[in-house]
Simulated assay, not measured.
Amino acid sequence: MGVPDLIIDPALKYWVLVPISIALLVFALLRHTIAILTSPSPKLQPLAKFRELEGLKSAQVFKRNYWVLPKHDFINRQSLHVKRLTDGSLLAEDPNNEPQNPLDSNGMDGMMDMAKGQFGNMIAQTAMMSWVNFFFMGFVLMKLPFPLTLRFKQMLQNGVATDDLDVRWVSSISWYFIASMGLVSVMNVLFNDESMGEQLQQQMMLQGGQPPPMMLGAPKQDKVMLAEANDIRIISYESVLDGVEQRVVELYS
């Protein structure tokens, strides 16, 4: 005997679905504003480090866009980048020096700021989840228009203890988690500012216990520059300007 399909009250859209979505958006805006107001003032970067980063970035831009240059410009820029990346003139620190201790004062200050941000995000997220659980627990909001396997049942029907319910139905708590994961793209679209979405994504990574990229082990800059120099050295020149006159004549003849 088949299980009869559910009939959803249209009022749930206005009293559950829309309030959760709006509350998540307002919550993301408040969290972003509080993070800006409480973030420490950025420290000035040393000139040598800035020159190192910009030199490496210039080499990477050349490697991606060399095909728009004439051949003589390509050869000159190729030799210049290879020379600057291999002779050590761009390095901000001597590669033979001992690596900086991550537990020094500067590193500890950064770790403390990160821990404070993670603690604040955890408290705010707990408060938001408690609000959703208290007011909207047990509601079924929508039905997805495409079939899914039973593996998605626990993810889409959290808070609804019904074994024989079609897996395509989405509960209110599950909608909260799905909308939370999609906030990054929504912030980028609504405000046309990728930095807001990136910052929100970093906050979500901290909240999930994942270390940010800057805390992960990274190769030394001299090794990175040597790798970039090797990539630039083996580039085979092929320009989009080759034979452009003949192509234009053939196009408009």
Score class of each variant (00 low, 15 high):
Ala115Gly: 06
Pro213Glu: 05
Ser195His: 09
Leu103Pro: 08
Trp131Met: 15
Val189Ser: 07
Ala127Val: 15
Pro145Leu: 03
Leu141Trp: 07
Phe191Met: 08
Asn188Asp: 15
Pro213Ala: 04
Leu150Asn: 08
Pro95Lys: 14
Val167Thr: 01
Met187Ala: 04
Ser174Arg: 00
Leu190Glu: 05
Asp166Arg: 01
Ile178Asn: 05
Met187His: 01
Ala115Pro: 02
Leu200Asp: 07
Gln210Glu: 14
Leu103Cys: 13
Ala161Ser: 09
Ala115Ser: 06
Phe177Trp: 07
Gln118Glu: 04
Gly182Ser: 07
Asn192Trp: 12
Gln203Thr: 12
Pro95Gly: 12
Val186Phe: 07
Gln199Ala: 11
Met196Glu: 04
Asp109Tyr: 12
Ser195Ala: 13
Met155Ser: 06
Tyr176Met: 05
Ala161Asn: 12
Met181Lys: 10
Val170Arg: 00
Arg168Ala: 01
Met137Val: 09
Met205Asn: 14
Ala127Lys: 15
Asn121Pro: 08
Phe119Ala: 10
Lys143Glu: 05
Arg168Glu: 00
Leu150Lys: 09
Ile123Thr: 05
Phe152Met: 00
Asn96Gln: 11
Leu190Pro: 02
Pro147Gly: 01
Gly117Arg: 06
Ser174Phe: 01
Met111Leu: 08
Ser185Asn: 12
Val167Leu: 00
Gln202Trp: 14
Leu148Ala: 02
Met205Phe: 13
Met112Leu: 12
Thr149Pro: 04
Val140Asn: 07
Gln201His: 15
Asn106Cys: 11
Gly117Asn: 08
Leu144Pro: 04
Phe119Gly: 10
Ser171Gly: 01
Ile173Glu: 07
Arg151Pro: 00
Phe177Met: 02
Gln201Glu: 14
Gln202Cys: 09
Asp104Ser: 13
Asn133Arg: 15
Val132Lys: 04
Leu103Trp: 15
Gln100Tyr: 10
Ser174Ala: 02
Gly197Leu: 04
Leu156Ser: 00
Ser174Asp: 03
Val170Leu: 01
Leu144Glu: 01
Asp193His: 07
Met196Gly: 00
Gly107Val: 05
Met214Trp: 09
Gln201Arg: 15
